[in-house]
Design a protein around this nucleic acid. Structure first.
Length: 200
DNA sequence: CGACCGATCGTCT
DNA sequence: GACGATCGGTCGA
């Protein structure tokens, strides 16, 4: 199965890319532990004009990677606990990113169970960005890795969700962003049990 | 159901 | 020194 080409991530419209990522397959392969899952929920963060984005307040050591060229990972620690996995998009100095909020597990479910300490597969395994981070083994030390690498990448197996199955809503947990909190930048596959949040 | 709370720590003021 | 792009549990109606 082909990896998405680097050009996919360099497009200027982060909202469109977030939409197109639905149905693609996220793969991590750390230390011979192969895990994959179909992306069923994403959120776009539109850079310096978007109050919800980490890039809104400008460059800091943490957010530097978002200001680089698209096609790399942005992994950050949330609430001191959760490893949040993002994809950097667009060109240098156009700091866009997409948060992967949920996947439908495909391969390496045993590895995901081991990493999360869960006994058996249920919807909580990869539902919500914190759980995705844990199940796929993400860590802030992997921030900045290229999606052309063999450790972290996204595959296209040709599956495209039917248009009627794609849900659009405001983003989750960004009330601090004022009027930008209402932007319709969250995309998900309707009816999929791994989709997080209460907004359907 | 919904509301609330604690965990836990890097980052920026 | 305050605060999260969260989660899972508990408590009360």
């Amino acid at each position: 199965m082909p990896k998405l080409p680097i050009s996919f991530y360099r497009h200027h419209d982060v909202v469109q890319i977030a939409r197109q990522l639905l149905g693609k397959i996220l793969v991590t392969n750390f230390d011979h532990q192969f895990t994959s899952g179909r992306i069923v929920e994403t959120e776009a963060y539109a850079g310096v004009i978007d109050k919800a984005s980490h890039a809104y307040k400008g460059r800091t050591p943490r957010t530097e990677v978002i200001f680089g060229e698209g096609g790399r990972t942005y992994v950050y620690l949330c609430y001191g606990i959760h490893q949040m996995f993002n994809i950097v998009t667009n060109a240098k100095d156009h700091p866009h990113a997409i948060l992967i909020r949920a996947t439908d597990p495909i391969e390496g479910i045993d590895t995901m169970l081991k990493r999360t300490g869960k006994i058996q597969l249920d919807a909580s395994l990869t539902r919500g960005p914190g759980n995705v981070g844990k199940a796929f083994g993400f860590h802030t030390s992997q921030c900045g890795i290229s999606l052309t690498s063999n450790e972290i990448y996204i595959e296209d197996d040709g599956y495209v969700p039917p248009e009627a199955a794609v849900g659009i809503s405001p983003r989750v947990g960004v009330d601090y962003a004022g009027e930008d909190a209402a932007l319709p930048y969250r995309f998900y596959i309707k009816g999929n049990k791994f989709v997080s949040g209460k907004i359907k």
